[in-house]
Design a protein around this nucleic acid. Sequence first.
DNA 1: TCTGGGGTCCTAGGACCC
DNA 2: TCTGGGGTCCTAGGACCC
Length: 426
Amino acid sequence: MSRVYALSDGNSFYCSCERVFDSRLARVPVIVLSNNDGCAIARTAEAKALGIKMGDPFFKIRQTCHAQGIRVYSSNYALYGDMSARVNEVYQRFSPRIEIYSIDESFLDLTDVRSQDRVVLARDMQSTVQKWTGIPTCVGLGSTKTLAKLANHIAKKVPELDGVCDLTDPVAYDHWLCRIAPGEIWGVGPSTVRKLEALGCDSVADVRDLDPRAARKGMTVVGERLVYELRGVACLDLETVAATRKGCAVTRSFSDRVEDQATMEQAVAAHASRLGEKLRREALGTDHLTVFFHTSEHDRGNPQRSVSAVVTLPEATNDTLALIKAATTGVRRVWRPGYRYSKAGIITTDLVPLAASQRALIGALDRERSGPMMEAMDACNRRWGRGAVVPASAGWMKARSWSTKFEMRSPRYTTRVAEVPTVRAS
DNA sequence: TCTGGGGTCCTAGGACCC
DNA sequence: TCTGGGGTCCTAGGACCC
């Protein structure tokens, strides 16, 4: 039996989260910046209309923002993550089968909803999310995930649809597929667009009508799946249980360039500390990690350098102290002075569930002590905020000349008691 | 002239996503 | 002065094996 999927996503999600807690932001242009206040990563319709593009570096648009009265915010991930969870709680009431695809997008299985009720349900969901969380959404319906995603794109682009597009309706399906460019298909990037153009595809309908074998030949199995998905033959299942992650990375650009080894070690130690937190939250561990750092391509005229070091740990672990030790070892191994480093990070792959990891013959004693200590540290940081308790090797918070900039961050309205909004009635 | 023929595993790199 | 930070999947090709 053929299935029906909905893809619901929050409009300009990060900006909408900011608007929920500040009514003055309604109907004015708002943008949210990436880490380090680097580029624009979320824009309201008003900001888009003023020409702000996705990924625009902030230093280039600062003047425009000021002149046009665009409200600018640093990323507030604590807020967005919490709002995302609230939105998903609402979705749960509309379908028992949900895949949380990203912070602002979820797939819902609506196969059991009668065809004449689907759009009604989608609109009900839209208005319920709006009412209960304050977040505006768009919903796309389709018989495969790729079609639901495409429908969602159409729902966003065509104002007359009022935020809901149903491609399970044969009339709409025929109407829209020949009016949308191939580049809008989920999984089709610039490189694939060029290949599709060479095959004579000007629209999504052309892609759908390709010979699947030809699609496979030019674009691997990914291209073949695309053709089938567009025809309504599902190749991608709903992933209702989040897969165990395979890798984990903590990487950051510095707010100021780093030129001395001690600072680099401190920065990398802080990344290692953060990595430990992330791994412990999912009971995963690693027995090797890659440390890297490099200069900036934008520093023209300065010597460039990009290095990495793989450090092996005696056994799989998520202990912050062990990770810091390994990370600093990596820095020492490849450090060379005389460069203006702009970014550093730690990457792990091949994560293992820690309970299943082999127990090393030595070090068991340390591990028995470190477990409770890490738990205590995590508990303190949950309660008093990240960085409340850090290993001395991760450095003083004050001295972090390398740390990330968030100069325009809004309060963590929903996750910090001290920052909960106050309402006055008079 | 002809120079075996499969397998598996691993890694690097490309492409794409949000 | 100032240009994000995560992820996933796929393939080709080398190393190695019998």
